[in-house]
Write a protein that binds this DNA or RNA. Structure first.
Lengths: 345, 345
DNA sequence: GTGAAAGCGCTAACAT
DNA sequence: ATGTTAGCGCTTTCAC
């Protein structure tokens, strides 16, 4: 293991100064083509590569992007945010960044705990996926780091965000059910403070009203703790216990849809004949479960990619512009929905 | 955004030298308890935190662990290796490391492409998941970096490895089928050069022989290109085309098992009544698909965790010890296997 | 047990 | 367009 060449070695061998070599390597400044060439030649000959730490120390950049996820989302290894994360990994490489992942609890107190990469000045920008404590966001903001939110937004503060077109997705879902003749369409949701869930719920409501359908409150379950499979099971149970007789259910996400299916099956109800179900997210399992779930496809990897592009843009930009991107959604019709057999109004 | 305190500020305020402060921070050397205390007090008061780049430059460490995955595994976002990766992320945080992910193609030529974190001296150790080009491994080895292989091993070279107990897993699977009365147990696999697949195949073979069951070659499909769902479909097709009449199939992994199920269904065969199926890996979908698949559970997150522990041990160790860990497996009986109805020998 | 001094390898003004 | 000069903030001998 002999000594790795340093920029010094390159400069010496090329008969130039350190700064000129640095300029060439970083593709900056006005260097004459000839000089550039000869530096590149020496770089190749010595197979020189700059050391990240040294660059970092001198330039106060790390070459890393921090990815922050709530503990719950991570420990559940939830397929939704995992996909977004993998999307960022993919795109980061294109921009010569690495992603540093960390999780945070619901509480945030800078006195108690701050993500290590923030303390160590080890990231140049931050991507936050899903709902996190707003104090954390403003803390990062005060550090002067570019922030991009994914599947989350804050009304008051202005931050770049990559969002799902939840309104359109939910509208598509409900219109699909309406078109199949359903009227008694229940909504099943939870974690209603999450902007995505709120939007889905409101669009559901709005679409029904626009179609002249007005249902009792018992057709809406919005207060589940978690938008998980268990939450879905529990919500479906309460739905029927409340006396509602839906012919279709729009679930806030696929996990809850799966929970609903589980409960309905246990009740002896057939899907979609007795109750049709539409989910949201199009997580992988949805196309494997029985019946395959009709859902709204969300381009999760794509969201991660866009987030990286935004944060890289912000890092390179001098002025901080806020960009909000709504990623399109698509209705995927599978087996869990079918036309209403007989109108039973 | 005022100036962040440096180690200099701490030293000054504590009335000590830089080196003493450094020793305290790194919990090294013989520092008197009193001195230690007072440094820690000042550190707290200034809320000082060392900068990663500066440490890196001075100490030639990065605080990162590289995770290398083959492109195929990553782009398929294969749930198996993704889980292992998430396991490493989890454990890395415990040890104050970050994981840097990269993918590599099947070919490796150091002249053409070397993972960037290697060139930039941006990792202190490497975890390699799944099969990769051996030249890459020896290249990393020549860099003097600790290596831990996960779900892969090289007979010749000695490297620490975290392996699945494939032999035991496959034995459990086949014994389960034998116990249910099956004798015509087919094997469906691919990518047979992968040590894990080889082991599973050999254990299958061995278990049958030990039980006095000898089948024609047509009961074995080992030459599929990929151990994917598609590979499974294709393998099942060829299995039946070859004239084999299995009452049970042991698939090299769950993905292939799913492919088999798909093909058998399309043939009008019922599972498990007509053909029983056992998979391997216990990926998430396996418990959602119809029928829920009987499989061998592999602790994927656990494998990632152990890999991080090993690599961290290696980083801290002066002498390089090679440790091979076989992670235990477990038979998970679900719906895809059932006792053979009538013996049809 | 503590301090002084010398870098680690690079970038970034500022000159020229 | 290229060179000179300072560091960036930390660790690490080596004295004392």
């Amino acid at each position: 293991m002999k000594h790795r060449p340093t920029i010094r070695d390159v400069a010496r061998k090329a008969g130039l100064s350190l700064s000129t070599v640095s300029l060439v390597i970083n593709n900056r400044g006005h260097v004459s083509p000839g000089t550039r060439e000869s530096v590149q030649k020496v770089v190749r000959e010595l197979s020189y590569h700059p050391t990240r730490s040294a660059r970092g120390l001198a330039s106060k950049t790390s070459g890393n992007i921090g990815f922050i996820l709530s503990e719950e989302h991570f420990s559940q290894a939830e397929p939704f945010y995992t996909r977004i994360f993998l999307g960022t990994e993919f795109e980061a490489r294109e921009h010569n960044y690495y992603i540093l992942l960390t999780t945070v609890g619901n509480q945030f107190d800078p006195e108690v705990y701050v993500p290590r990469f923030l303390l160590e000045r080890n990231v140049d920008g931050i991507i936050i996926a899903g709902k996190v404590n707003e104090k954390l966001i403003s803390h990062i903001d005060s550090l002067g780091l570019p922030i991009v939110l994914v599947d989350f937004e804050i009304k008051r503060a202005h931050h770049s965000a990559v969002l799902i077109d939840n309104w359109r997705g939910a509208t598509l879902a409900v219109e699909h059910l309406l078109a199949l003749g359903h009227k008694k369409i229940a909504f099943v949701g939870g974690d209603i403070r999450h902007p995505s869930i709120t939007d889905r719920y409101e669009a559901y409501h709005n679409t029904l009203h626009m179609a002249g359908v007005f249902l009792e409150e018992s057709y809406e379950v919005t207060d589940e703790e978690e938008t998980s499979v268990e939450g879905g099971t529990s919500a479906a149970e309460r739905l029927f216990a409340s006396g509602a007789k839906p012919t279709a259910i729009f679930a806030a996400n696929d996990a809850m849809a799966i929970g609903c299916i589980r409960h309905l099956k246990s009740r002896g109800l057939r899907i979609p004949e007795d109750v049709a179900i539409v989910g949201f997210d199009d997580i992988e399992i949805s196309s494997h479960i029985e019946p395959h779930i009709t859902t709204i496809r969300v381009l999760k990897e794509e969201m991660g990619k866009i987030a990286v592009q935004r944060v890289v843009d912000s890092i390179n930009a001098k002025t901080k512009i806020v960009v909000t991107t709504h990623v399109p959604v698509e209705l995927i019709v599978r087996e869990s929905t079918v036309a209403l057999a007989h109108v039973e109004d």
